[in-house]
Design a protein around this nucleic acid. Structure first.
Lengths: 337, 337
DNA sequence: TTGAAAGCGCTAACAT
DNA sequence: ATGTTAGCGCTTTCAA
């Protein structure tokens, strides 16, 4: 039923009564063929329903014009990034080749698949691999790491200024009169260390060293829920509840919010909450989460541009590009009582 | 820096001191090479950092061994399906080629990309395309539709018995003594019509025609939240609140739950809630949602097997495979008061 | 402007 | 078990 062979360039050449070379030129809109020939070739191609075989074309020309993207399929924020990557790539003439990391398919496997597809560069979203492994990979193919900082040389990094993000959050809360501001961190997740640092520095700057309180969290709702319970139980802060909580990311913040609401804590009346990422989650009307937004459009455009520059061998000035975050005020933050 | 030519099969052959054929066999794990040779080839390949060129491979073999998968990157349930599809494909020797639908990239575009990659068959997750368009596509390439019913011939369908799922939900609630059971539906989403029908039939069977109440919903949290507000306002059911709500899917149910909790309605004390999908969302400890589970493992295995059978030209008995759903009782349902 | 020939990196058929 | 040969469909010299 689907056994019919597709027409090849040779078929078109025969039908048009010219050589394969001419057909090749015409199909690629390259100069070097007479208008008359051009017309006949196009006619023949149309009649046969000919479509060039990109594999053969790429095999011969030695290029794939493919950008490999490794992402975590369970990460909502990665979904946002992939969405924007498609948009960013559209203008460049490169295609995206997606390779997902799942509970059953690790990063290495995802990368191997992309390598076999002969992607010309790799864009990794929040990769978990060791910096050393990334550097080794980068020796073979241009690598752009998105949404994670990597010290090793060899890989390009596009990330948001995580520390600044938490400064924005703390400044916002302090401006509202909050003093007991806790931070539910992201543990060992990409960016977590920087955000923690940003929180600590901002607290210090506001003279709130005594109130500084980092609660171990993580990047899932579960982690947030667990952290919120501990906070409510008064285990931290000398038994006092915080009046505001900054959370590693929106997903985790959702867990925090959920526990607060179930405990009948008024948000933001009694406790204010700030997330991170400005993911679709935060924008939901019934969540309406104040958060720190990453400029995903800028970040993805930079990542694609950087990858292509590396492929083209264009000299690139900085290995790392840091995009400033912005505060997005919504309904979960209010004046301290 | 990355100008060095990638190692080819010939390079490996030279280094290992054997012919290209042997290397080819070894790389594909085909029989016909001695263990000693196998070891030496693998060593040489590792040292060179060799990765087979899939384009050349498929150009020569005339096959891509690629299964195209179209999925909505914002759909959490699709993420679950993709996860299982990778697992299902692993055993078959086929690779998955992912193509995402995003707000900026429609289904047609996603499909076109896969077609150019010369995928041998397409697996579409809850496609929005008209049945007719799907049939037209199926004339060119085997198409398996997952998580949506399609009447048109020509495409294979693997789906769960949506109507049965809602029957399970209603039976469960009726068994707990509930009578005023509402249904927040999925509008025009794939499967919504069947679930609505299952709800209506089950209500009738329990002699609850008078209590039947379908509230327009959708597949997002927003939709669920809006529906819950209307339910609480007593606009429906002659001003009486329902004591139980069945919801189109987990995501929508989350919105319902959120509004209920904020309104200080005790779940399940005052109102029980049942979702659909048994997505990761429902399993979160703090959500702990009673739901109807789709057997994603079975469905994805069937989808992959079906796609491969079509490619191989194996006769297939039924166009449509329907997998039974199962009730997953968690914490959001309890006895009627 | 045109065509012939030589591969791109690989697999498959046929040797040995 | 191993090597040799001939392409897959295309682009790219190089000649004519």
């Amino acid at each position: 039923m689907h056994e019919q062979r597709r027409p090849t360039l040779s078929d078109v050449a025969t039908r048009a009564g010219v050589s394969k070379s001419l057909v090749s030129l015409v199909m690629r809109d390259e100069p070097g063929a007479s208008p008359a020939t051009r017309r006949r070739v196009h006619e023949a191609a149309d009649q046969l329903g000919y479509h060039p075989d990109s594999r053969a074309r790429l095999l011969r020309s030695g290029r794939s014009r493919l950008l490999g993207v490794v992402f975590g399929i369970q990460h909502a924020f990665h979904a946002d990034l992939v969405t924007d990557l498609y948009t960013a790539a559209r203008a460049t003439g490169y295609e995206l080749s997606l390779s997902a990391v799942t509970p059953d398919r690790d990063e290495q496997e995802a990368i191997t698949g992309l390598l076999q597809d002969r992607c010309e560069a790799l864009i990794l979203l929040g990769p978990q691999s060791a910096a050393q492994a990334l550097a080794a990979l980068a020796a073979r193919i241009p690598v752009v790491v998105l949404a994670r900082g990597v010290r090793e040389t060899g890989v390009d990094v596009v990330r948001n200024a995580d520390a600044d993000g938490l400064r924005l959050a703390v400044d916002h809360l302090a401006g509202l009169g909050h003093r007991r501001i806790a931070h539910v961190d992201g543990g060992r997740a990409p960016g977590a260390a920087d955000r923690r640092r940003g929180y600590r520095e901002a607290m210090r700057r506001h003279g709130l060293d005594q109130e500084t309180c980092v609660v171990p969290g993580g990047l899932t709702e579960e982690d947030g829920a667990a952290a919120a319970r501990r906070l409510l139980d008064g285990e931290l802060l000398d038994g006092d509840r915080p009046t505001a909580i900054t959370v590693f990311n929106d997903r985790c913040a959702t867990g925090v919010l959920d526990v607060l609401i179930r405990a009948r804590v008024d948000v933001p009346g009694e406790i204010s909450v700030v997330g991170y990422d400005d993911s679709r989650l935060a924008r939901l009307a019934h969540v309406d989460l104040t958060t720190i937004g990453q400029d995903t459009t800028a970040m993805t455009e930079l990542a694609v541009a950087r990858a292509i520059a590396r492929v083209a061998g264009t000299p690139v000035d900085r290995r790392e590009v840091v995009v400033p975050p912005r505060l997005v005020v919504r309904g979960t933050t209010g004046p301290a009582t």
